[in-house]
Every structure is written in C-alpha cells, then in structure tokens.
C-alpha cells in the first residue's frame, strides 16, 4: 500500500459548546482528488483551517506524508508542501497579480533575507510566476493590481498562488464560490488539468464540478463524515441523498 499524502485521524474541534469537527477520519492518496461536500456550517472550512494550521484541533492526528504536522505552525506546514486557497478571497490587494504569485515562488526558492537587490528584477521568479498565472489563464492580467481584478479573476489568482508553491497537497476551499458559470467552467478545466499532479482536497458546493472532478467524495454533516467513497457510491447512498444531495441534484 502506498503511503497516504494526507491522513486525518479522529479529528475533533469545538467552539464553546458547538462541536464542529466530530471525529473526522479521512485519507488522501497520491494524486488523488478528494472532495468534501456538505451543507453550510457542516465544518468544511474549519477542517481545512485545522489542516493548514490556522486553527488548532482539540484532539486527533494529522499526518502529511507520514509527518505529524499538528505541532507545526502554518508556515512550516507550507514548507512541507501544503498549499491552500481561501473560501473568502485572500490575496494581497495592493500587489499586482504577478507579484502575488512571485511572492509564492520566492517562498520556496532561495532565501528571502536578501535586502538590496530588487525582487521585481529577478527573471527566475517572474518566469515561474508567469507560468503559474498562465495555467489559470491570467497571464494577460499579470500587471493588474489584485484589488482591481474581477471576483472570478481573484479566485483564479488564489489558485495560481497555490500552484506556484508546487505543493504536494492542495487544499481548495470553494474555489468557485461566487463565480459565474463561465468562470467556474474555466476553473473546472484548470483543475482537471492539474489532477494527478498532486493530491487535492476540494471543498465545493457546485455538485456538477464535484462529480466531474472527484476520485473520492466524503460527505460531512454536523462535523461528522456521513459517507465516504467513490462518486457513484456516494451518489446512491440513501443517507446522503436524504441528508444533503436530494435538494441539490434535482
């Protein structure tokens, strides 16, 4: 058996009395795209926060390629090859699209304790950043300040930043949230292209996208994994249909 890229075991987290992650166990293999779906407030974003390190779980284990990452702060986890996108767009508003991505390239190539040489003149950084922008179809917007990009373009920029990190595992929190049909279509195409290159955990409400992309699907309700398996199995799971999919797939 090949080792799992991400292994979450018995994860628990509550906010006050509200249990948001209730014994979640989940495994993602190399190159696998694992979708997590569930109604609003099911605890999907909270799960991603715990994996990326912006929230600390109360109990459980998280292993990245066999390493226990729970004691590590977010930036150490990123160095181990963990990248994420945010449900609420979280780019650097006053940086150009290119500089947003270049900053990610810079994070994994060479020291950032360089004080005199202008970073914008480093061709290596710019080229790689440009390549990541091209993957998401943003290369023609490279010089635009992020604050001035359209919502869909910002979502694509989120993705480009994550790609530029050359991750081993990519956590995507609703990459299509709030985008129009055309833009979601574009993002699905990009994700299809990326599939297999690295493992992905995709949280998404757009069921067409999920079923088009996922190798495996886990359904989360009230912080608990209700069902987990191949898309077809999940689609036909009675409990899932009742709890969640019924309304969505009409």
């Amino acid at each position: 058996m090949t080792e799992a890229v991400l292994l979450i075991e018995n994860l628990r987290k509550s906010f006050g009395g509200l249990v948001v992650t209730d014994g979640v166990t989940l495994e993602i293999g190399p190159g696998e795209l694992h979708a997590v779906i569930g109604p609003n407030g099911a605890g999907k974003t909270t799960l991603i926060h715990q994996v990326s390190g912006t929230l600390t779980p109360d109990d459980g284990r998280i292993l990245l390629n066999g390493t226990d990452i729970l004691p590590l702060p977010p930036y150490e986890r990123a160095k181990l090859g963990l990248a994420r996108s945010f449900q609420i767009t979280s780019v650097l508003p006053r940086f150009s699209a290119l500089e947003n991505v270049a900053l990610a390239v810079q994070a994994r190539s060479g020291s950032s304790y360089s004080f005199l040489r202008p970073a914008a003149a480093e061709a290596a950084l710019n080229d790689e950043a440009m390549a990541a922008l091209a993957e998401v179809g943003l290369e023609h917007r490279a010089d635009i300040v992020a604050a001035h990009l359209s919502h869909g373009e910002k979502r694509a920029l989120e993705l480009a930043i994550a790609l530029a990190l050359e991750p081993k595992l990519l956590l995507l929190d609703e990459p299509m949230a709030g985008t129009g049909p055309e833009e979601s279509e574009r993002i699905v195409t990009v994700l299809k292209k990326l599939k297999g290159r690295f493992a992905m955990l995709l949280v998404e409400h757009d069921m067409n996208a999920v079923f088009a992309l996922a190798d495996r699907i886990s359904v989360l309700t009230y912080g608990r994994v209700l069902a987990s398996g191949e898309p077809d199995a999940v689609r036909n799971d009675r409990a899932v249909t009742e709890a969640y999919l019924g309304e969505e797939l009409e």
Binding site: S52, G53, T54, P73, P74, Y75, A78, K79, A83, R84, F86, S90, V91, L92, P93, R94, F95, E99, A102, L103, A104, Q106, A107, R108, G110, S111, S112, Y113, S114, F115, L116, R117, P118, A119, A120, E122, I161, L165
Partner: peptide
C-alpha cells in the same frame, strides 16, 4: 528604498497586507 523593493521588502510589505496569507504560503511573518 532598496530594502522595500528587495525580496525581504516584498515579504515585509506582504505581511502588512495579509499576514494569514503570508503564513500559509510559508513565511514566518
């Protein structure tokens, strides 16, 4: 001026805009 535009300055400026984002791309802000 040099520092502001350097690799370091880029991280320093980025930290002001969005420290959480900076941490998740691997910077110890």
């Amino acid at each position: 001026r040099a520092v502001v535009y350097s690799r370091f300055g880029r991280v320093f400026r980025g930290a002001r805009e969005n420290p959480t984002r900076m941490a998740t791309i691997g910077y110890d802000v």
